[in-house]
Design a binder for these strands. Structure first.
Length: 431
DNA sequence: TCGGTGTTGACAAA
DNA sequence: TTTGTCAACACCGA
């Protein structure tokens, strides 16, 4: 049983027990997601679908939102009338996180509905929405709905959002389709929930049947430089600062920093990056976060490890002047735009004039991107070959019906050479 | 077994 | 601004 399954079971048990005492009937529908992961997996022969397209083929028409088409069930809302004390961040175990005044996301259902309505009002925008085309450097007016935190905390019903989108699609002549449309985004969420529900050890590499076994390194100094926005690559560091300050950044910005940490440059284990995101993202979601880290590290779902986001040109493509970098990394605010994505290449007099000496006011690049990415590709290619070989051997064994003995018991976990334990014990500074 | 396809790359060429 | 190339993997359906 994995986390989602045990969580659901605990919740149902608790609610039922509580309700029984009050003599209340309990009806627990699928409501956090649109579809039932269990039913989709059953339809697929007991295994979760592993591609988006195969997932789409399995789903039928979605059920209507509760209270909005199911007349026997009242709308679910939050009763704010009884003045219950709201727990503080410290109560919730986040006392060491300082909240920035600029955090743009207010909590609650009222705000969630307001946000959804505001997004949906612009029917042209909804009809034309195409996720891969958004601008990850747009921060004054984000290129997406930013409804993810509200979906995560249950302030916004995914079913309601889905139905509202359908209403818009019916009204407009032409609109984008899944996977790139807004509807497609909701279905990605469903897809990842389904895989997460049906996969043992989903949140780790070892023992996870869908996860490639790759000998990631365990270098805490690389990890902390990345986490603290000290890699020396302004685009990467600015994204990590936005994560810390806002608890949110654009989807493609997440891709860029996740790729950099894992398969692109630093070759640090995706589970480490996952933990940082899990801690700092306001919308962090167990199923989606783990899925995306496996995706970006080429551990599952995606395997084109030659396609690496450049920590220099990817941000530049959207924001050649570096407005985004200057906003989140004020130390670089006076760096001329020719050098803003590669400040270490600026002549020393330019650095002096910009009041930003590289190596003193802002770090030198942690690694050389060209060399590091080449290195990563080679290591992943080798790991892939080994995974394939072991999978082949395993299939052979299954085909021949040979009973497993000790010499056959090798599995893909063996690909991992455990690094010397605690060789580098540099303690991570607190969040 | 093989060809088609896969939400989101970078770079060069047209 | 759009298209082809790079080098090549995993999954799926015929």
């Amino acid at each position: 049983m994995n986390l989602i399954q045990s969580h659901a079971q605990k919740r149902d048990g608790f609610v039922k027990e509580f309700a029984l005492k009050l003599g209340v009937d309990v009806f627990t529908p699928i409501s956090h997601t649109i579809f039932s992961p269990e039913e989709i997996i059953k339809k697929n022969g007991g295994k979760p679908p592993l591609t988006y397209q195969s997932f789409i083929k399995l789903i039928g028409l979605p059920p209507l939102p509760l209270g909005n088409g199911s007349p026997s069930i009242p709308p679910v809302g939050i009763d704010n009338s009884n003045d219950l004390p709201i727990p503080t961040l410290t109560d919730l175990g986040f006392g060491d996180v300082s909240q920035e005044e600029c955090n743009p996301f207010i909590g609650g259902e009222t705000e969630a509905l307001k946000r959804m309505d505001a997004s949906i009002q612009d029917q042209k925008w909804v009809a034309a929405f195409e996720k891969p085309k958004g601008d990850p450097t747009a921060f004054l007016k984000p290129a997406t709905t930013v409804l993810s935190p509200y979906l995560k905390f249950g302030c916004l019903s995914s079913r309601l959002f889905y139905q509202r989108l359908q209403e818009v699609y019916r009204k407009v002549k032409k609109h984008t389709e899944p996977p790139v449309s807004l509807e497609g985004q909701l279905l990605w969420r469903e897809f990842f929930y389904t895989v997460a529900y049906g996969t043992p050890k989903f949140d780790q590499m070892e023992g996870n049947p869908i996860c490639k076994q790759i000998p990631w390194n365990d270098d805490d100094s690389l990890l902390s430089a990345w986490r603290d926005g000290q890699t020396g690559y302004p685009w990467i560091d600015a994204v990590m600062v936005q994560l810390r300050k806002w608890g949110w950044m654009h989807h493609l910005a997440r891709h860029a920093v996740a790729c950099f940490l894992t398969r692109g440059d630093l070759f640090v284990h995706w589970e480490k990056g996952r933990d940082v995101f899990d801690r700092l993202l306001i919308d962090s979601d167990w199923a989606i976060n783990n899925s995306n880290w496996m995706w970006l590290s080429c551990s599952a779902f995606f395997s084109q490890y030659h396609r690496i986001y450049s920590p220099i040109s990817f941000g530049k493509k959207y924001d050649p002047d570096g407005k985004y970098v200057r906003y989140f990394l004020p130390v670089l605010k006076d760096m001329p735009k020719e050098y803003i994505y590669e400040p270490w290449t600026a002549p020393i007099d330019v650095q002096r004039k910009a009041k930003c000496i590289i190596g003193k006011d802002y770090p030198e690049p942690l690694v050389s991107h060209l060399g590091a990415s080449k290195n990563c590709k080679e290591k992943i290619a080798a790991a892939y070959a080994l995974n394939k070989q072991i999978k082949g051997e395993r299939n052979q064994v299954q085909l021949q019906g040979v009973k497993k003995n000790s010499s056959d018991s090798r599995n893909t976990d063996d690909v991992i050479k455990q690094p010397p334990k605690k060789l580098r014990q540099k303690k991570l500074t607190s969040y």
